[in-house]
């Protein structure tokens, strides 16, 4: 399966990367990791890319890493459709002080607008 994973420097990113790589190894997915540049997280895109590369090397899979600038949600949806991906994977669902799950604007945009199947990793 041709899978597009979108990640940025948030906590959910690690879970999404881990889960997607694990699945890609098992299912022999054709994986592309999109590093989202236009987000305001603590980790820079370079750091996110370095972590992703480490994880992919460790799993010994041949995945593509690319940088995505511009509005993250719409770019991911656009790439998934234009390039014929079967599935789009994103992390999402931060917890409030109370413990409520809150979906961010990128997650919401992707869930509502993607024409391909979306996996939300929490």
């Amino acid at each position: 399966m041709k899978v597009l994973l979108g990640i940025a420097g948030s906590d959910e990113t690690d879970a999404a990367l881990e889960e997607t790589v694990r699945r890609a190894v098992e299912a022999n997915d054709d994986l592309t990791v999109a590093i989202l540049e236009e987000t305001d997280h603590e980790s820079s895109p370079d750091e996110v890319e370095a972590r992703a590369r480490d994880r992919l090397d460790e799993a010994d899979i041949d995945a593509t890493i690319r940088r995505v600038s511009g509005d993250p949600g719409s770019e991911l949806v656009e790439i998934a459709e234009r390039e014929g991906f079967d599935r789009l994977v994103i992390g999402g669902g931060q917890r409030s002080p109370m413990g409520k799950i809150q979906l961010g604007s990128i997650t919401e945009f992707v869930l509502l607008n993607a024409q391909v199947s979306v996996t939300l990793v929490r």
């Binding site: 669902g93 917890r95 109370m98 413990g99 409520k100 799950i101 809150q102």
Partner: peptide, 16 residues
């Protein structure tokens, strides 16, 4: 339940 709370299961409920 709403937005993931309350959690389910004794341990998770108590932790929360």
């Amino acid at each position: 339940r709403a937005q993931g709370i309350p959690p389910t299961g004794e341990d998770r409920i108590e932790g929360w």
